[in-house]
Design a protein around this nucleic acid. Structure first.
Ligand SMILES: Nc1ncnc2c1ncn2[C@@H]1O[C@H](COP(=O)(O)OP(=O)(O)OP(=O)(O)O)[C@@H](O)[C@H]1O
Length: 611
DNA sequence: TTCAGTCGCGTTTTT
DNA sequence: CGCGACTGAA
């Protein structure tokens, strides 16, 4: 046998990475900081299993944090496996996996195969309906707040029937009543919300051993990324699935846990030790992404946290450029600074691509001013997240028709169709009555568009209407990729903000267009860019005002800042504005506490010259 | 049934 | 400030 280092797969990895990739069997936890190659190791491990250990790809389950990340991992895996006619393992989020399981085997829990998946706005609509039904005011019982409590309960596997036991105080007691009715309405609608997907799958596995066995026999190897951001139900799923074969590889970093607001708990990482006593832990300490200066500054920020371990990192990229800090007078000037710097970069490095730049911010609202300034300068940008494609009126209208076509009990889709217009609804329902069976998603969509005269109301000369027509066309092109209607709707529900508009790609090459990326820090998880801007580093914004009361929440903001900084490979720009419009009011802000934690030698401070 | 105008509320972060 | 939800007029 040849030495491990000569192996075509292992030769691209350092020593501890090789150890992880070629780890024989049993539970394995890779704990490592940002840029140390965790994701890379996971991909190579899958490749190793397939090409060296001859594990059939269909026996491997790859779970990621977003479906986009799953897509990227599949692409990288294909590249590594090259000409081998290997298939690629199934890869997706916990939610997608569960959706698939319930589609197939949900009937054991009386979940029909054509169940609907309710997103945030469907959930809110449902809660409003419940409040109406129980004669409660949506002012006292804000749907978002109630939903948050219900979601927390579901994360802990507490059902509507059990919730009253745990409810404390009038608000929670009323929430218990709402929760019960909410579940009843969901059931009537044959619908599940996001949390239900996880919870019901756990219930299914616990209740119906034969189903669990079926999946345990199908999957023998489990590879899970970003484990620090899993919640309790996801932990239970991991345990149930991997218990039998024990071949579990998990990667994570507590310092990058940023989703606790959604029930995630980084302690799931160490909890694995209890449920998998054989657990082997491997640390990766070499960072391949950032310069020494960037790593040092990021480390100075995260060092203030005391609740979780902070993993060591080193790099061979000694020194590097200093971190620039810009103190702007207001948010307009801050945005102008970003644009000016990018322009300067482009001039000094003629062929440098706009894809090298990312602008990160704490809240979505901050993107507006950056967008406006970029638009004004003529520089193309790509907004990740933001007003999502699937949230546009015309798209939601089309989807409501399709949803009711798939599942006639879907109350929220029904309500929306009524709201679109009585006349169109009438036409739609008469079509639905004699609706042909077994058409493709696209055929259904086209028949609906024709029978409701949906596009007739739009005026092609009105640019806004034209955009709507274009959007519907784009929906048609997405539909061609998912001929099965249930799968199409499932994909739409689970992809949500991950969807990139077609205009983001070059027509001929299908490569992403050259553009500056704009996104929230949360959305930036797992990415890397040569040049990173973090804007709005002000007390009250980052850390956010709603997170500065509790120690745990401040620590999470700090981790968020750490994640943001460690996205940068070569150059990091930090900025804040002394004054900023907040809800239409001007407010004065101090520099973020995180900036004070970075030692001055690492910083190059640029003061606004326009004061 | 539709649309224009007003009010009020909100911004953390998202599968 | 900007958007969505609601209301009243046609
Ligand atoms: N052994 C290696 N040789 C060369 N490059 C490497 C090696 N390991 C990792 N890299 C590179 O380092 C960068 C970071 O890797 P990766 O994204 O896998 O890290 P990560 O630990 O998952 O980061 P994060 O925690 O931020 O998601 C990538 O560009 C990757 O290609």
């Amino acid at each position: 046998m040849m030495g491990l280092g000569n192996n075509p797969i292992l030769s691209h990895l350092n020593q501890p990475q090789q150890e992880a990739v070629s780890f024989k069997e049993g539970p394995l936890l890779i704990l490592a900081g940002p840029g140390s190659g965790k994701t890379r190791t996971l991909v190579y491990r899958a490749a190793w299993l397939i090409s060296q250990k001859k594990v059939p790809p269909e026996n491997i389950l790859l779970l990621t944090f977003t479906n986009k990340a799953a897509g990227e991992m599949k692409t990288r895996l294909k590249k590594i496996l090259e000409d081998e006619r290997n298939k690629i393992p199934w890869a997706g989020t916990f939610h997608s996996f569960c959706a698939k399981v319930l589609r197939l085997d949900g009937h054991f829990l009386n979940i029909p195969h054509n169940y609907a998946i309710y997103d945030e706005s469907d959930q809110q609509g449902m809660i409003k309906k419940v409040l109406d039904n129980l004669d409660l005011s949506p002012k006292t019982y804000k749907p978002a707040v109630v939903l948050n409590l219900i979601s927390q309960a579901k994360n802990e596997m507490i059902t509507a029937l059990e919730y009253p036991q745990y409810a404390r105080g009038t608000f929670q007691e009323t929430t218990a009543r709402i929760y019960l009715k909410y579940q009843q309405f969901l059931k009537e609608s044959m619908a599940l919300d996001f949390d239900d997907l996880l919870l019901e799958t756990v219930r299914l596995f616990q209740k119906e051993k034969s189903v669990l066995q079926k999946y345990q026999n199908q999957y023998h190897w489990f590879l899970i990324d970003e484990y620090q951001d899993t919640n309790h139900t996801q932990y239970l799923l991991t345990k149930l699935l991997a218990k039998k074969e024990q071949n579990l590889t998990v990667v994570g970093d507590a310092s990058q846990a940023i989703y606790s607001f959604r029930g995630a708990d980084y302690r799931n990482l160490v909890n694995l030790k209890e449920d998998f006593p054989q657990l082997k832990i491997i640390n990766l300490e070499q960072n391949y992404r950032s310069t020494e200066n960037i790593l040092q500054a990021a480390n100075q920020v995260i060092q203030k946290n005391s609740s979780h371990p902070i993993l060591n990192l080193w790099t061979t990229k000694k020194g590097g450029e200093k971190i620039s800090l810009y103190e702007a007078t207001n948010e307009e000037e801050e945005a102008q600074f970003v644009v000016n710097i990018i322009k300067t970069h482009l001039l000094s490095i003629p062929n440098s691509s706009l894809n090298n730049f990312v602008v990160l911010y704490r809240t979505n609202a901050q993107s507006r001013i950056i967008e406006e300034t970029l638009l004004h300068s003529g520089l193309p940008y790509l907004l990740v997240g933001g007003v999502r494609f699937y949230e546009r009126k015309e798209i939601k209208d089309c989807l409501a028709y399709l949803r009711l076509t798939a599942n006639s009990q879907d109350q929220m889709a029904h309500k929306r169709i009524e709201k679109i217009g009585k006349r169109k609804a009438k036409k739609f329902f008469s079509w639905l009555k004699k609706k042909p069976k077994n058409l493709t998603s696209l055929e259904y969509l086209d028949q609906i568009l024709v029978s409701t005269d949906y596009l007739k109301a739009f005026d092609e000369n009105d640019p806004q209407d034209l955009a709507r027509i274009e959007n519907v066309k784009e929906l048609r092109s997405v539909a061609t990729n998912f001929p099965d209607l249930n799968q199409f709707l499932e994909n739409v529900a689970l992809i949500q903000q991950e969807y990139l508009p077609a205009e983001a790609f070059e027509i001929e090459t299908n490569q992403p267009k050259s553009a500056i990326t704009l996104m929230t820090v949360h959305a930036a998880k797992g990415t890397e860019f040569p040049v990173v801007f973090i804007v709005g580093l002000e007390e009250g914004l980052f850390p956010h005002a709603r997170a500065i009361m509790e120690k745990d929440e401040v620590e999470e903001e700090r981790r968020l800042c750490y994640v943001a900084m460690t996205r940068a490979k070569e150059k990091l720009y930090l900025s804040y504005a002394h004054r900023r419009f907040y809800f239409g009011e001007k407010s004065a802000n101090q520099a973020s506490r995180f900036l004070n934690d970075i030692s001055p030698e690492l910083l190059d401070v640029i003061k606004s010259n326009l004061v």
